[in-house]
Amino acid sequence: MPRQPRRRSYDQHCAAARALDLVGDRWTLLVVRELLAGPRRYTDLHADLPGVSTDMLAGRLKDMESAELVTRRRLPPPVSAYVYELTPRGRDLLPVLRTLAAWGAPDLGEPRPTDAVRAHWYAIPLLGALTELGAGVVQVTLDEGEFHVRLGADGVVGYGDGAVEAPDARLRTDAATCRALAAGELTLGAAVDAGRAVLERPAPVVAPVVASVVASA
C-alpha cells in the first residue's frame, strides 16, 4: 500500500495547534456539522455543502478517515451505496461546534443574497435554548424545512435532519427567531409569549386502568 502523504502541520507542540492540524482545513468542520446529523451519502453531503467542489470534498473525507474522525461503510442490500459517519472522536467535536456557533451567532444577521440556507443548520445554534425543555425529542419546523433535536437528561445528545415520528415536543418558528435565540437575545419562553414561536407538547398516552375483581371464597 503506498504511503499516504503527510498532512500539513503547524509543527507546534500545542494542543490547539494539534487540533487545527486535524480539523483546521477549509470545509472540515462543516463536514462534521453535516455528519453530526447522522450517516450521509457522498451525494447528500455534496448537496448540503454548496460551494465545495467534488475533488475538495473527496479529499477532505479521505483526510478525515485517515485522522479517524470519519468511517465509510456500505449499506446492506437492497441499497447499494456507501455512507460516511463520524467516529466517537468525530462526534466529540459537537461541543466545539456549539461554542463556535455561539461565538459567531451575534454576527449572523440576515442572510446575504449569496447565502445558501438549510433548516438543519440552525440546529447547533438552537441547542442551548432547547435544553430547557428537558429530556426528549423536539421537532423544529421552519419555513426552510424541518429538523429534530434529541435531548438527554444531562444535556444534548444530538440532532438530525427532517421530521421524526412521535416527538415529545414540536416547535414552529422562523429563522429570525432562531437567530435571536442563538444569540441569547431571546429565551424560548419569551419567544412563545411574544407569539414568535409555537410550542406543542403532545399529551402522554395513558394506558387504561383495568380493575381486577377478586372473588371471595
Rank of each mutant, 00 (worst) to 15 (best):
S80A: 14
L36W: 09
P77I: 05
P50Q: 06
A81Q: 14
R73Y: 00
A37K: 06
K62F: 05
P78D: 13
T54G: 08
L45W: 01
R26A: 09
P50W: 05
D44M: 08
W27Y: 10
D55W: 07
D44W: 06
R89H: 01
D48L: 02
D48K: 07
V83S: 01
E68F: 08
A67Q: 14
R89W: 01
D92K: 06
K62N: 12
L36Y: 08
G51R: 11
H46I: 02
P77F: 13
L69F: 02
A37P: 02
A47E: 15
M56D: 09
S66T: 14
Y82G: 04
V70P: 05
L94H: 06
V70H: 09
D55G: 15
M56W: 08
A67I: 05
D63A: 15
L29P: 08
G51S: 12
V31P: 02
A37S: 15
R73M: 00
T87E: 08
P88W: 04
D48V: 10
L29K: 04
P76K: 12
R26E: 12
L61H: 08
Y82H: 14
V79Q: 14
L86T: 11
L30T: 05
P77T: 06
L93Q: 10
P50V: 09
D55A: 15
S66Q: 15
E85A: 11
D63Q: 15
T71E: 11
T71W: 06
L36V: 06
D25V: 04
G59H: 12
L61N: 04
P50T: 05
R89E: 09
M56C: 10
K62T: 15
E65T: 13
T28R: 11
S80E: 15
L30V: 02
R40G: 05
A37D: 10
R91L: 09
A81N: 10
G59Q: 13
L94S: 08
R26L: 12
A67M: 10
P95Q: 02
G59L: 06
R91F: 02
R40W: 03
L61T: 07
Y42M: 08
G90E: 05
E65A: 10
H46E: 13
D55C: 06
P77H: 13
S53F: 05
R33W: 02
R60A: 11
R72N: 03
S53M: 09
